[in-house]
């Protein structure tokens, strides 16, 4: 039944992801003293986008985003059907590369700057993600997600530093302040809509859906650290999501220098020290 998780991911993840996105907007609005849109707003938006005309600068630019969506789904399917964690991360990188290349292909200054910053963000978060995989392997002696979830104890007990480093870069993956350098949910003066500036209509809808899939995948990764206690796992994943909203609302965007130094530094200090400790403990 290894394929069931993957199948459920393909079918359910957009709903969960879209709903999370709606809840995000609602909670954010409440934090800012507004009423906010209905929780289903994300779906309404995408439905509307699907009907809009698809404007492009380069005729081929939309293909890259199609492949971004395909590889994002592929990443999640691999993860939820219990595949190799390293392969999952490589597939995620592959998806990210297509996203970036789409931004480059659009050949417009704003999408270009967004694409470069997106690459920089990928470079920033990758060490923490890979260190997480290495740490999980050291605890469970396996890279297979299917075996990791059956580990008898709470993985986070042995990996607090690694988890902290991973949590730190979640902000990048959720595209939240202070790390929403490449594109964000709001338009910014110097960036407009960043990497997605030149995307509209169906293609923009696909990007949005890909982000929903990404949300669920990332929360699944958070769950891994608590997998021996499923209830706690789901609760912690949701808590992590809520924390991201709070962070988003209380912080301003930083410069890339800060982003790179902070995420590499935290991954090295917290993650690396944790790995070293596990290694010396034997």
């Amino acid at each position: 039944m290894w394929w069931l998780g993957g199948l459920l991911f393909i079918v359910l993840a957009p709903f969960v992801g879209g709903l999370l996105s709606g809840i995000d907007r609602k909670i954010t609005a409440r934090m800012q003293g507004r009423i906010g849109p209905p929780v289903w707003q994300a779906f309404y938006d995408v439905a509307k986008l699907l009907q809009k005309e698809n404007l492009v600068v380069r005729p081929t630019q939309k293909m890259y985003m199609d492949f971004f969506l395909v590889f994002t789904i592929f990443t999640g399917v691999l993860f939820f059907s219990g595949g190799d964690l390293l392969l999952v991360i490589f597939a995620l990188t592959m998806a990210g590369v297509f996203f970036v290349l789409g931004g480059y292909k659009a050949s417009s200054p704003y999408s270009f700057i967004g694409a470069q910053r997106e690459t920089l963000q990928m470079m920033s978060y990758e060490p923490a993600v890979l260190i997480a995989a290495v740490g999980i392997y050291m605890v469970t002696r396996s890279f297979q997600v299917a075996q990791i979830v059956h580990h008898p104890t709470l993985i986070i007990k042995d990996l607090p530093g690694v988890f902290f480093a991973f949590f730190f870069i979640l902000t990048i993956k959720f595209r939240k302040s202070p790390f929403d350098l490449s594109t964000s949910h709001h338009a910014h003066q110097e960036l407009v809509k960043g990497i997605t500036t030149e995307f509209s209509g169906r293609t923009l809808a696909k990007i949005e859906i890909a982000h929903w899939y990404e949300y669920v995948f990332i929360l699944g990764f958070v769950y891994l650290f608590f997998a021996s206690n499923p209830v706690l796992g789901v609760a912690m994943a949701l808590l992590a999501f809520f924390c991201e909203l709070v962070i988003d609302n209380i912080s301003a965007r930083v410069r890339w220098q800060w982003l790179l130094a902070a995420s590499w530094g935290v991954a090295f200090v917290a993650g690396g020290a944790n790995i070293l400790y596990l290694m010396l403990k034997g």
């Binding site: 690459t119 990928m122 290694m279």
Partner: peptide
């Protein structure tokens, strides 16, 4: 595993310079 840290940071950089050339 500590040697893996070198590999991890190095390959993050690898990603960056190849992607920007490709783009």
């Amino acid at each position: 595993p500590f040697l893996a840290i070198f590999l991890i940071y190095g390959s993050a950089a690898t990603l960056f310079f190849w992607v920007k050339w490709l783009g």
